[in-house]
Amino acid sequence: MKKAKELYAYREMIASLVKRELRGRYKGAVLGFLWNFLNPLLQLIVYTLVFSVIMRAGIEKYYIFLFVALVPWIFFSSALTGGSSCILANQDLVKKIYFPREVLPIAHTTATFVNMLLSFVVVFAVLIVTGFGINPVACLFLPIIMIVEYVICLGMCMIFSALTVYVRDMQNIMAIVAMAWQFLTPVMYGQQMVEGALANHPLMMTIWNYNPTTPLINAYRQILYYKEIPDMHYIGMALLLGIVVCIIGWAVFEKLQKGFAEEL
């Protein structure tokens, strides 16, 4: 409770770090802040060219199928990989001045979250402009999914940012883990493909479904690609998992943060 109050007092620091990260990233570039939109748009064009001209996938409008899952995935993976180094990157601050250390993972996760929101502006523009269309009722569930994902990302970011201070290899390990994790989550393929392949292995299917990112990514796709109301049962499970991850993350962080200044 005391910690929450203190973090609230430091809200301006969180806000200014988020601003610094978003504005600092493209500072000096001619197009500046516009890159936040341009970057996802150009990626989408590349995927469209590759998958509708060169590698035809068996899924209709595959570039949209892929893209509505890829944008939230990028948020998750950058919270994981970038997040693991977010305390190292700010070591000058940590070594020399007091502030609640939780500010750093919170600011990093929030900045990548805002980045995802900006990419979604492009996603929506594409959905409308191409005539693919959206289901407004299903879209009402989008914020819930996003918050669940934010909670999971924050927990992950806290655990790995704190561990990286003690074991520097964590940054490199997380880069590989994030890549492997991407292939274990239905980002580039659909849930049906897995269900088909694992039809005779119910145990493996259960394990598969415990991956917290699976129901999340599926929910994004259900809302935006299939234009359906997402399966709230899975979302509830993901939220539960997210809260558990967040509590563990906070506990690990609290334990490790006392030694930050000495380890850096």
Binding site: A9, Y10, E12, M13, A15, S16, L17
Partner: peptide, 11 residues
């Protein structure tokens, strides 16, 4: 603004 925020000041 950034520096003062680090000292825990609000906007």
């Amino acid at each position: 603004y950034i520096n003062a925020a680090i000292f825990g000041l609000t906007k």
